[in-house]
Design a protein around this nucleic acid. Structure first.
Lengths: 204, 204
DNA sequence: CGTTGACAAACTAACGACAGTTAGCTATAA
DNA sequence: TTATAGCTAACTGTCGTTAGTTTGTCAACG
């Protein structure tokens, strides 16, 4: 792996555990296997490493959004693919979203890092909000709005449905960081199953 | 206000905005209106200030738990007071919990601080989990279990009901940090209202 | 084929700034 | 008078960063 990428991934993992201010350039360099001064052959400052991590995550996130069912900003036509929504499809959406941010080698530590830095750095705060709060909710609100119009879902406030679908995923991610427990996927599954029971219209 | 308490509340607010490592003793002292060395007349180290904040929050939290309906660890007899649960009662529980951690002068910045420090400091991680994840869920699981047994709630997995009741509150707190929007209480209200429609048994 | 030049990326050494903390002095008030 | 709680000054260590140097790689050239 190129040194520059190695610096980035190492910094991400260190920042996610100890915070941006809790990691010195010397520690980062040692973890990479070089001296601190050598980092400056690849990045102009510590802050630039952090900013590169934000940019890298946004790149990866957009790519993921375009290939799977991870939520992004508003997107009307994306909802069309959910005609004839099934509990299995909802399970898939929730499962992919959860696993990506729980176990992906970049996304998982990034989520920890951005959670820790959200109040300190305003760029981090914006990304945290866009990626884990407002962006996710807005996308899913649009999705459920369409599903209601199509008669797939019971008639209720789509914003609240999105909140009821997404917020357990959000909380289970925080829970996963701490316990690493195995049966957390089972909890996720049960959540979606119950959500489906409550909101998806019985057909026939 | 005593200097010692002033140091604590000032440190809490600074830590919540910039993180523990992002605040120097000189900055803290300046915000209090004294010199850095004078802080050591009240605390033996920077770390001790942080630990005092953890202890202070735990004290306040226990007091709150004993007087209002904020969740704590398991508590069977507490559920008895919810016989004949109404939507208004659920609104009250959710509202009190939310407002305490969103606006209380100590609890609100503490929640930010502990969110930022949860991965860096294992004590902080434990308290975050106990106060905002597992503790809250365990208490409410017990509560809803009783409500099901008493026939107030539809028959469903009480862990999932607790997740469905609490996780939107958890997410809305994170959202509130960023937007400070006024209509967030309305969203909380709508969530509980919809939750109530879905889970509380229709009587008669 | 072997030498050279150029560039990337590592290194050592060091800079000034600032970190947490301590020692010792001073002033207020019980 | 004695304790409390402020102060100045300074210590040691680490911070992010820079300057200047060495090493390795590889293409171009005699």
């Amino acid at each position: 792996m190129k040194t520059k990428d190695l610096i980035l991934i190492t910094a991400l993992n260190l920042f996610s555990e100890r915070g941006y201010d809790g990691v010195s350039m010397r520690e980062l360099a040692a973890a990479v296997g070089i001296k601190a001064a050598s980092i400056y052959n690849h990045f102009s400052s510590k802050e630039e490493i952090f900013n590169s991590l934000l940019a890298e995550m946004q790149n990866r996130y957009e790519k993921i959004v375009h290939t799977v069912s991870i939520p992004t900003g508003t997107s009307k036509e994306a909802a069309i693919q959910y005609v004839g929504i099934s509990e299995e499809r909802l399970q898939q959406i929730a499962g992919e979203l959860f696993l990506y941010f729980a176990k992906d080698e970049f996304a998982a530590p990034f989520r920890k890092m951005i959670t820790s830095e959200q109040y300190r750095n305003s760029d981090a705060g914006d990304i945290f909000s866009q990626m884990f709060i407002n962006g996710a909710l807005e996308y899913q609100t649009e999705l459920f709005k369409n599903l209601i119009e199509q008669g797939e879902f019971i008639d209720a406030d789509p914003e609240i449905i999105a909140l009821h679908f997404y917020s357990p995923i959000f909380l289970l991610l925080a829970k996963y960081d701490e316990t690493r427990e195995q049966n957390i996927m089972e909890k996720l599954y049960k959540h979606v199953s119950q959500f489906s029971k409550l909101y998806v219209k019985r057909c026939g």
